[in-house]
Design a protein around this nucleic acid. Structure first.
Lengths: 205, 205
DNA sequence: GAAGATACCGACCAAACGGTATATTGTCAA
DNA sequence: TTGACAATATACCGTTTGGTCGGTATCTTC
């Protein structure tokens, strides 16, 4: 076979990561169903053969993006930061504050990758739903755990259910991001999150 | 041409409504991009020719669903009901209570048609975004207006911005529906909305 | 009742899609 | 050095997609 324009050296790990990264962005921009493998390949200079060597189907690629890109991303940016504060109220408050001040264009334009996939895929594919749900549950659990410790330390009002509140906080965040995205407005995004801050402060004892 | 199996009598309005209704359900189940015209046609016994007589493109059909189905649906179920209460706190509270008790399977499975389309389409098509944003703005406006009147009547705390709170409430609702959908859990859905009720009550003077 | 407009029909089309088959090349253990 | 296998390349395939087109039936108007 002629004209084999191949990569100079083999690097399967790099190839796999390139694919995951390109797939992540393609999915963020177009959604999973409308994500085009051809476009992903064009953005990575990876051949179709290589793609199907690393991932059995488009679906497998999507599931890998959830598990290996979106999950870890949230874990880093959110969960470890929350653990650094010894007061959950100020911890959550500061986390939201950071979201408010770092309102970059990508969030306003494309919203939250996790929420996007939830709305699109969770009714259509049980494996997707479970992969996404695992991340959500972890998120809620981390917030709930912080609130519980805050209750023990007398920082959080004891008359409230940490699990329920954590669930609601996560829901509100996704809601704020979603509305900011549709308004295409940093202002709406910030105003919405600001109210969440007010709510969070009301949890203090 | 032989074998023209046509509808017995013409009824352009009915045909159009049938198409809008079927498209609404198809979009709710699959999203807009993955919505199949063939499937819509199969569910309506309308021919492709008839479809393209009433709607210029698939995009036009989608925009019509937003404007003529989703918009009015929310207007009926929400906006008129809120106007019936003379206290916005109890009005909003009851509206959420109704959502909690009427947690039908469709909401848990498919979520909110408005939010689904926002997350999928608003970054991809400016006309979609504007159509959806019009509905969101109306929603926020109705809630904000009710809160303002409540402030005047001394029912709502005066130290808060009705527009911001209204935005946040709408965002929270969408967030709760979205999480309930991903958890596939009526329980999570209800617990989440229950916290929103608590928040709403905290707005009372 | 003829003419013109409106509504509807179904075969067809090009493009894009995810996926497969087969060939080739790099890597590394034996 | 060689044999085996992992990694990569590309041509190709069947299906589905949104959309078009020439034609027909029905309704309205004069």
């Amino acid at each position: 076979m002629m004209n084999m324009i191949q990569r100079k050296t083999r690097n399967p790990e790099q190839t796999r990561n390139d694919l995951l990264d390109a797939a992540y962005h393609e999915i963020l921009e177009s959604g999973f169903q409308a994500a085009s493998l051809e476009r992903i390949l064009a953005n990575t200079s990876v051949s179709k053969g290589a793609l199907y060597h690393h991932f059995g189907t488009k679906r497998d690629l999507g599931l890998a993006v959830i598990e290996e890109v979106i999950g870890p991303q949230l874990e880093e940016r959110w969960f470890t930061m929350l653990a650094q504060h010894d007061n959950p109220i100020s911890g959550l408050y500061n986390l939201i504050a950071e979201k408010i001040s770092h309102a970059d264009e990508s969030v306003i334009r494309y919203g939250c990758p996790l929420n996007n996939l939830i709305q699109e895929m969770s009714p259509l594919d049980e494996s997707f739903r479970q992969g996404l749900q695992k991340i959500i549950e972890r998120w809620v659990e981390v917030v709930a755990e912080a609130l519980k410790e805050g209750q023990s330390a007398g920082q959080v009002r004891p008359d409230s259910n940490p699990e329920d509140i954590a669930l609601y906080i996560v829901a509100s965040i996704e809601g704020c991001v979603g509305l900011g995205k549709n308004a295409q407005s940093i202002n709406a995004y910030q105003r919405c999150l600001r109210q969440l801050q007010v709510y969070i402060q009301s949890l203090a004892v």
